[in-house]
Each structure stands twice: as C-alpha cells, then as structure tokens.
Design a protein around this nucleic acid. Structure first.
Lengths: 340, 340
DNA sequence: TGCCGCAATTAAAATGTTTAAATAATTTAA
DNA sequence: TTAAATTATTTAAACATTTTAATTGCGGCA
C-alpha cells in the first residue's frame, strides 16, 4: 500500500513545497517559526507518519543498531541488554535483537540482515568460532562493531568484558581461605577465550596456594541451571570427594545447589558453592549465593556509549576494556569440614 | 556513505540493465537460467548487499515484524518469544523486540517507530491501560496487530492466550483435593483481564468446594522471584495460617519457596505451593514445582502463524483463542497436615 | 531609481530498488 | 518466407525523503 499521508500531502494542503515541510518537521531555522508551527499542527492533524526508509535511503543513516548475543533469555545477557537499551533509548535509536545460540550461521545471517536494513552499528557477543571475515564484513560495509562479554582473537575491535581470570581467582581464593582443598570447577567450556581465562584464574589461585591441580575436578557442561543440576550427580560421585565448587556462573551454581539438595545434602553447609555474575537472582537463592559480580551493567553501558561515540565521529581506542569484578560473599559458602 | 555495490554496479560490469539484475537475483523465470547464474556469481564476487530500504520503499513490504511484551527477561515471555522467533525465522522475517515494562508511552513509541520503519505487522502483549487508539493506530496504517498473553477489552483483534480462569482453578482444585482449606493467592495484580480471570478461577474453585473466600488471603505483588520472596514474610504472618499458596506464576512460587525456606520451614512439606506457567526452570526447582502449563509455546507459535497468514492475505477469525492449560504435579505440594 | 543583502521558500536531483509496459531477439507455424 | 508466438531484456516511472543551489520578495540605502 502506498503511504496515505506523506510530505507532499501536507505540502499541497498548505500550498507549500515538500522541501519546506521536510525542513520544518525537523525544526530547521531555515523555515520561519510560525510556518513551522503551522506545518507541525497540520502534520499532526493529518496523522502523518515519518517514513524512515525513504529518509534513510537519502541520508544513509537508519537509526538502527543491532545487538546479537548467545541467548537473550540468559539473565546475564539480559542484564547487559537492559543497560544497552537504556543507553540507546535516550539517543532515539531503535535496536534489533537476536540470539545466535553459538551458531556462526545464525550470527552471519543476522549481520547480513542488519546490513540490508542499513544498520548504523552492531554490538555483538561473538558466537564460538566466529570467523574474522564475519566481523570484517560489518566494518567493510561501514557498520562499526563493538564486542561485549567475549573477546575475539586476531581482531582489533573495541571490546568490553569482565576480567574473568581475576574474577574466578577471587572466588577460588575465597574458598581456599575457608579451608577448602578439593575444589571442583563446574560448567562452561574451555573453547572460548572466556573459558580459558576462567580456568586459568582457577588454576592460578590453586597453584599460588600450593594445591595440586587435578584435571578430573574440571567438569565442563552447559552454562544453564539445567546444566548445573545435571552436573550434581557426577560431582557428588567424584572419587576425590570435593568439598567445594567454583561454578561457571550463577545459573550453574543454582542448578548445582538444587542438585545437591535433591541428593539430600545441604548446599552451603555440606558443600560450598560459588557462582559468577551476581545476577539479581543470586541474592534470593536458598542459600543466598556467594558469587562474583561480573560488571554486566557496566559492560552494556560502556559498549553502547562507545558505539554512539563512534557514530558521532569520535573514534575511541580499540582493544579490550576489562571491567574489574567484585566478590559478593553470602551463605552458599562456609568453612571446610569433612564431608559426611 | 553511498552504497558501493548496487544493482547498477553489477549491471554495468556485465553490460545488462538493472532490471535484469533485480529479477535475476530474485530468481525470476523471466531471466534466462544461465544469465541468472552469471549474475549471481558476479553479485557474490563484488560483495553486493541487497538494500532493503530501497526495495521496501518501492514495494512497501519491509519484512520487519515487531514484538513488544512486558519484559523479555521474564522467562514466560522468553518462551513465547522463542516460539515466535522460530516461526518467523523460516519465513525470512526480521523481528524487532521491545519491552514496554507496562509503560503505555514506551509502547506507543515502539508502535510509532515500527510504523516509521514500515513494519509489516506487530505482535503485542498490551501494556496495562493501553488505550484503544494505540492499537488502532497500527491497524489504521496498514500494520496488522495480534495480541498475545493478554486480552484487551473493547478491541476485536486476534488474541492468543491461556485460559487463566480454568488454569488457576486446576491448581486450586489440586490443593483442595490434598485436603488444604486455607489457601492464599500470592502475587500479580487484579488490574488486568488476566488478573481478574485468575482470581476468578481461584474463587470459583473455592466456592465449588464450599470453602469461604477470605479476601485477606489474596496478597497481590510483583510477578517476579523477588516479589514472591518478599511476600513470604507477609504470608507466614497471616493470622489465618494458610497451609498452601496458589501463586501467580512460577517465578513468584520459586521466590515464595525460597522465602519459606529462609524462614526455616520446608516448602512442599510444611507449606504446599503451586506455580503457574511451567517454565523450564520449574522442574529443577527444589522441591520440583507443582504447576500449570500455560501453553506459552503454543501461544507464540499460533500468534506468529496467524500474523504470517494475515500478511499472506488470509484473514483468520478475530477474537480470543484460548489455549487449554494442563496440570503438572511435582513435589512442591503434599497432603494437608497442620502447620508446625 | 537601482542595487544590495537578507529571509523565506522552492526546484530539482539524488538515494537504490521494483515493475508494468515496451522492445528486441528467437522460434514456431503456416 | 513471413506472420505469429514465445522468450529475453530494457526503458522509464515510481516509491518518499533530503539537500544543494537557485529564486522570490522585500526593506533599506546611496
């Protein structure tokens, strides 16, 4: 259907040209102030709707920003998205969201769609195995990209994320300080830079305390509650009988605690558990979860700001910007005592 | 920046017209098969990117579908969105997502933005207090709207949601069947049609069993874990000493159970709790949550289908389509025994 | 009177597609 | 061999804006 009310409709109804209408609606000082008012009133009266595609065809600015992350239903990303949303909102940008579920194809399709729509920029938490060409594709077509939560090797884009190695070492040190010596690490993968960093933080903390690293205590798995829940059986049957677990994130930790409880043990007493992220939910879990704040609000806010700045012309420094995590001690950890 | 590779770039490089290129890239039988192949190869080689805004300016079809719900981080909506996403994906539509957080203004801004972008349609779970004009605005500008999860009075749009009254009565009957007589209803509001329906279902079930309805047992509140958690204190100090709680949704139920546990009681034994929705999470809660499946996947799937059908020309019946909820009995409910 | 400068407005081109109608090229039928 | 039919391609207009450069009208000034 053709647009019923357009600039020319208003122009004709007032005996003016479309140029004047266009300028007036954007509050250009080139148009006399009372003409401007008259035009705006008329636009409202006729129910005029601005046609962004026509405008953006002319200006090559669409006001669209794409955001693609692993899974928007994961509250970790959810909190990042909220921060991005509130930052973009005040600058009249529309944002288009997508999950990639770690599928490189889905992610590329998204980038292509965004390019077709003339997206002004993209914020992404790259899927595992993202080829460099895919982000280059965006940049090469004039669509700046910013990375959040995950880094990419061999590509020099502005990246905002938590300092994983440091963060996990905080959690591990906390458990060591409570007297634990057999500490498992549950959930996640070692295939991402994040994964390697986290494992490194765990290993470093153990080594520094003179504790031998036992690779059998590393139980990778999904980064979800379900994943943590299912890991509980394996965890509880380890011959080494760990007394504590450093979890990949809060979801895994909560799932693991549920699994532990299901097996008749008391999480926080019989087994100490740490999370990671400090989601809103962590503080209301039972027991309240000892965890590490991963700076998701800061990550989102800074990434959005960086993109907006770049769109406004100022090119802030590329490279990785690490947000310092902070320990949050609650009731899911307690001093070591032998397992029943 | 002007587009570097466009139809005319390809056209010139091959000595053809843009019309031929346009048709070929869309696989029109009007173009000879080998010409078509040659053109597609060349497009790939030059790194051509289809310009949707130009196309949609001409065709007035954008391939964009808007979805706006209360809060995408709420897993109930998350599950609906996933269903919508997977349905739209296979028809090459891009979807734009937004939260309205029950702000009518934010919702209207979203609808306006979507109109400006030439959105083909919108799926919405209307904000509390949405004025009829706001949805009419969409329809009046040729953008069909479909409602999910919530109805709107006085507007005759296709609506897909669970049968709330029936669903809550299932949960309430289940508790009554276990011998409970003092049953509270926790969380949510009575300001929405959903809220009124759910309360009605609770009241109906009680009445039918000859139990007097005590309005003090209705504790409204936020529909979140936090809300349920905080309601626990109030709930546990009620003079009527309820032995069971029907919760607005799973989140409230899980929060409430956490709160009950925090107070030293055992949810599922000392107090029976039912949820609503049957989120993925319900089955891994401790204790596993007895709840009512609210058909969110069906709601999302059917709504998306209905919209696509309408866009394809077939106008399916307006009005409310109720999905039948189903009881899921787990461990958070048990036969009545006097509270300790 | 003629010229200048200024304010307000406009003409016209440009953005990259799609598509109806027209044309050119080739094949088929008579 | 020509007319008709079919196939392949092109012309040109349309979509709704923005923006540069041009135009108009007017008051003031010499």
């Amino acid at each position: 259907m053709v647009q019923k009310v357009k600039l020319s409709t208003i122009a004709e109804s007032l005996g003016l040209s479309t140029a004047t209408i266009s300028l007036a609606l954007r509050d250009s000082p080139l148009v006399a102030i009372d003409t401007r008012e008259k035009i705006k009133d008329q636009a409202r009266a006729l129910g005029y709707i601005y046609n962004r595609r026509a405008a953006s065809l002319r200006t090559s600015r669409s006001g669209i920003i794409g955001v693609v992350v692993h899974d928007i239903m994961n509250p970790f990303y959810g909190e990042i998205l909220k921060a991005i949303e509130s930052e973009l909102d005040r600058s009249r940008h529309t944002f288009i969201l997508s999950n990639h579920y770690d599928s490189v194809e889905k992610q590329r399709t998204f980038i292509e769609t965004l390019l077709q729509l003339g997206g002004d920029g993209v914020i992404m938490s790259p899927a595992i195995g993202t080829p460099i060409e895919d982000v280059k594709l965006a940049e090469a077509n004039g669509m700046p990209a910013i990375l959040v939560a995950r880094s990419m090797d061999g590509v020099d884009l502005p990246t905002y994320r938590g300092d994983d190695s440091y963060g996990i070492s905080l959690a591990t040190n906390h458990l060591i300080g409570l007297g634990h010596r057999t500490i498992a690490m549950i959930g996640g993968t070692d295939q991402t830079s994040t994964g390697r960093d986290r494992y490194q933080g765990y290993v470093n903390a153990l080594r520094k305390a003179g504790i031998e690293v036992d690779p059998n205590l590393r139980i990778p798995g999904p980064r979800s509650k379900q994943g943590g829940f299912e890991a509980a059986v394996h965890f509880l049957s380890l011959p080494q009988k760990p007394t504590a677990a450093v979890c990949w994130n809060d979801l895994v930790a909560i799932g693991l605690m549920n699994g532990i409880a299901r097996a008749g043990l008391v999480p926080g007493q019989d087994i100490s558990v740490t999370g990671y992220d400090d989601l809103e939910e962590a503080s209301i879990a039972t027991p309240a979860l000892t965890t590490v704040w991963n700076g998701q609000t800061e990550v989102g806010r800074l990434a959005a700001r960086a993109l907006l700045d770049r769109l406004a012309g100022s090119h802030d420094p590329d490279g990785i910007h690490l947000i310092k995590p902070e320990m949050r001690i609650r009731q899911s950890t307690s001093p070591h005592h032998p397992r029943a």
